[in-house]
Design a protein around this nucleic acid. Structure first.
Lengths: 193, 193
DNA sequence: CGCAAATATTGCACACAGTGCATTTTCGTG
DNA sequence: CACGAAAATGCACTGTGTGCAATATTTGCG
């Protein structure tokens, strides 16, 4: 009952569907792309498509990279300033996004032009938010769950804002985007006094 | 070309559809409710339903009360502590929600039991968020747009959290919920130093 | 190896969602 | 009352998403 292989294969198929969806959107525009077309380009049946994604929007947005476990642990156990400790977490996370800059750009462009994708995007963000909320719960300790939840929301929101500038401006440094996030959060802290 | 009357009629019809949708959900559960059933209970054709809402989820969630203009203006032009000035805005907003406590409770219960409603709910929240962002832009002045956007997100998030406790606990005072919101935001400010 | 169990893929049928378009009805206004 | 804009409607049609049962593939194990 060793399913590590199966898990990897599943993830691979999902990625293939995702890529097929992105390519078709680039070629014909989101509205002209059907789940059937995606399935056939990905070399699977329509029925199988729905085994992997609930709808085409989900296939397009797929899921954002998670927070690497090592960085999460380090942050959760850190005891410096929260914002400074968070830098490592952000570096780890944004680095992963950087790996896949091309897909990121494409998805972002699609999001701009197709408001109908917003729901799917938000849904995938909810996953990230709750992952971060879990990490923050460890860091903040008990009885701070509301605070942790809210903080998670605001951090993800700041990351999204930074990605907007980062993916657009070709030669922007990753470090600058991270600074932007931290500065925004710090300003938020000031204004909430 | 005086369309004030038409606007009111339109809003009324939308409300009737909304109510019909809520009633049917209560009776048969969300999954068993079709757009056709909603239309027919509301006394309109299926085609007309889609003139008012893009899908049944939107009809169920409808739209949350906005921030009353007077309170918004007062907050935008205030110059005390941001959080204290915000209290008036929150009072005005939550009071409106209180007017319709019954529907609020029902919608909240539906949201708990039907994850499929989350998207529609988030979509309607986006409207509120951008409304608040506009208000905050006035209050904060220029060059703070990112900060205003992020702040709007976090405030709406705090409101949602407070509503969770408020709608559940029967005899909770509105004032307490508002305090809860402000305390959460203040704690957030502290932790972001 | 080769079998049995678990898991993944697929085809088919079907009910519902959502849209475009042309037509009809309603209703405020002059 | 009559006109015209806005709203409601009917109809046809494409695409979505699911349940179910059959088939194929992979995995663990004797």
């Amino acid at each position: 009952m060793e399913n590590a292989l199966r898990v990897r294969r599943r993830a691979q198929t999902a990625r293939e569907i995702h890529v097929a969806a992105l390519e078709l959107c680039q070629e014909h525009g989101l509205d002209a792309v059907t789940t059937e077309a995606i399935s056939s380009r990905a070399g699977i049946s329509l029925r199988t498509f729905f085994n992997y994604f609930p709808n085409k929007e989900a296939a397009i947005v797929h899921r954002p990279p998670d927070f690497p476990e090592a960085a999460a642990k380090e942050f959760a156990e850190g005891n410096g300033s929260l914002l400074e400790d968070m830098r490592g977490l952000l570096v780890a996370h944004l680095t992963q996004i950087d790996q896949n800059r091309k897909a990121g750009l494409l998805i972002q462009a699609l999001l701009r032009d197709n408001p109908g994708l917003k729901n799917a995007h938000e849904a995938s963000m909810r996953g990230l938010i709750s992952e971060l909320a879990t990490i923050l719960a460890t860091r903040l300790g008990p009885d701070k769950d509301h605070l942790g939840d809210i903080l998670a929301v605001v951090v993800i929101c700041a990351i999204k804002k930074a990605l907007d500038s980062w993916l657009v401006e070709e030669d922007r440094l990753l470090a600058d985007s991270i600074d932007e996030i931290l500065v925004n959060l710090q300003q938020l802290g000031l204004v909430l006094q």
